[in-house]
Amino acid sequence: MESEDQPAFKTRGLAKTYGEGASAVHALRGVELEIPKGELVVLLGPSGSGKSTLLNILGGIDRATAGEALFHGDDLVRMDDRRLTRYRRKHVGFVFQFYNLMPSLTARENVELVAEIADKPMDAMEALERVGLKNRADHFPSELSGGEQQRVAIARAIAKQPSVLFCDEPTGALDIKTGIGVLRALQELNSTLGATTLIITHAAATGAIADRVLNLADGQLRNVEINAVKKKPEELDW
C-alpha cells in the first residue's frame, strides 16, 4: 500500500529476454533499483544497454521475463493487460521522442484527449500555459515546430496529473536550443507538480539536471549517481 516512505519504483532481479535458446537476446539481466517519489531521474547508457526496455517495463507497455517491478508496492510484472492499461491511464504520463501527437487534433484537443479519460485532470489550457504554449492552443501539429510539438506532448502528459512521467529521448529529435527549452519545462514541472520523472537520454551531460542518474550498460545497472545540487538545463556543458 501507498505510504510516504515507499519508493515510487523498486525492482528486484528484473530481467528481459527476447527470443529463445541460442538466439536469445538478454536486454535486462537482473536490475535492482529504487527510485524515490518525486525525483527527477536520468537513465544514461549506450544504445543496447537496456534503458529503453527498463523504461517500457516501468511504463507498463512491456512485460519483464523475470523478477519484480513494484510501483507503489504493486508488481507491474504480474499485472494483466487490463490492469496495465488502468495503470497507464491513472498514473503514467508519456513523452515520446517523435511526439506522437494526433495530427487531426489541435494542440488543445491533443491535451484534452488525455484529460478526458483522467480522474482529476488539469485544465487543458492550464497545461499548455505551463509549457508556454497557451497562445498556440488552436494550432494543428503540422503548424507547430518540433520543439513546440514536444511541449504539447509534455502538456498532454502532465494534464492527467500523473504520478510518474516517462520521457524517452525527449530531445532526441530536436536541436540543442530547443532541447534545452524542453528539459527546462520538464525540470520545472517535476518541481512544481512533484511527479516522479524518468528521462532517457544518451547525452551524458544531461545527467546534471537530475536528482539521480542511473547508468546502464549491457542490461545491468552499473552505478547510481546522486546530485546534491541540480544544474539548470541552460547551464549544461554540451
Partner: peptide, 10 residues
Amino acid sequence: ATLRILGFTK
C-alpha cells in the same frame, strides 16, 4: 498505439 500507451483501453 499511442492512444493505447496513453492509457486508452482496447
